[in-house]
């Protein structure tokens, strides 16, 4: 007994400088982990449910032990998910390319060789982002109907381009401003044209910024629902509309729904995980580095 006591006292004594702190920090670390897991839990539950048979998905109490299956993912494509994903891919991909093609030169004009009234132009771009979309949906619907562009993926492409353009201009401007002036002056000195300066000098230097901008555009257009639900029907419908199909049959097909939700979210989740650093800058329109 005595030896044990001494040993215990010894360890308690040898550490006192650090331990109170360290024990507290261990507690905080555990708490942080717990909160993180709690926060992530709905996502985990979605993925778990996606691997269930329907009978295991709606039980009381909820079931954690079950026989996993890929049945739901296979069924998705039998249920015709393919075209929705293709439409989303098309709308997201093409609109992102268009945004970059328009935003990079504009950001160049605003950052490198500022035009007059640069502030006003920036103000204008960002104010279009703050215009609530409900305020323009009615005329867009009527005009698209008149020119036979309802339920057409190109309508979405144009709208997603307009939706992301202001963010992209602001972001690219903030990235371009970081480029040292001397580099550009040197390239001009050598007699490079604007196009050469853009493609051969600037673009390689802002490639990370370009990737970050593209990521933000992809997130917003892949997840976009309001325009899609109002302007498309069967041929141009995107992934969020495929998910909406589960609203009517809710309660019966939770596992199927969870599989669809998982698959629908996967591209953006993976991209976002890979580019966490750029996410902050994109979300603050480039204001925070």
């Amino acid at each position: 007994m005595a030896t044990v006591d001494i040993a215990a006292a010894g360890t308690a004594d040898s550490a006192p400088a650090a331990p109170p702190r360290r024990r507290g920090s261990g507690l905080i670390t555990s708490a942080t982990w717990l909160i993180g897991v709690f926060f992530f839990f709905p996502v985990a539950w979605m993925v778990i449910t996606a691997f269930k048979h329907e009978a295991d998905a709606t039980t009381d109490p909820p079931r954690l032990i079950f026989e996993p299956t890929l049945e739901q993912f296979r069924n998705l494509f039998d249920a015709g998910a393919g075209p929705y994903f293709l439409n989303s891919l098309m709308a997201t991909g093409v609109s992102t390319l268009l945004v970059l093609a328009l935003a990079v030169p504009a950001a160049y004009a605003l950052a490198i060789r500022p035009v007059k009234r640069t502030q006003d132009v920036l103000f204008f771009f960002i104010s279009t982002k703050m215009l609530p979309v409900v305020a323009v949906i009615v005329p867009i619907y009527v005009i698209a109907g008149r020119v036979n562009m309802l339920d057409n993926v190109w309508t979405l492409i144009v709208l997603y381009t307009a939706m992301n353009l202001p963010i992209a201009v602001w972001m690219m401007r903030s990235f371009l401003q970081e480029i040292p002036r001397e580099v550009l002056e040197a390239s001009e000195m050598d007699g490079a044209t604007l196009r050469q300066t853009l493609t051969q000098v600037l673009l390689p230097m802002v490639a990370p910024g370009l990737a970050a901008t593209a990521l933000i555009c992809v997130i917003f257009s892949w997840n976009e629902f309001f325009f899609a639900v109002n302007l498309t029907a069967s041929t141009a419908a995107t992934v969020p509309l495929f998910l909406v199909g589960f609203m009517t049959s809710e309660g019966l097909f939770w596992a199927q729904m969870a599989a669809a939700a998982t698959l629908a979210s996967l591209p953006v989740v993976l991209a976002g995980w890979a580019a966490q650093k750029q996410l902050v800058r994109g979300l603050s329109m480039g204001a925070i580095k």
Binding site: F40, V43, M46, F225, F246, M247, W254, A258, A260
Partner: peptide, 20 residues
């Protein structure tokens, strides 16, 4: 883990909250 909810498609997360 903490940033993931922001990346989930809002329609998907709304469906999950309503049901599961």
């Amino acid at each position: 883990m903490i940033i993931t909810p922001f990346l989930i498609m809002p329609v998907a997360s709304a469906l999950l909250w309503k049901t599961t």
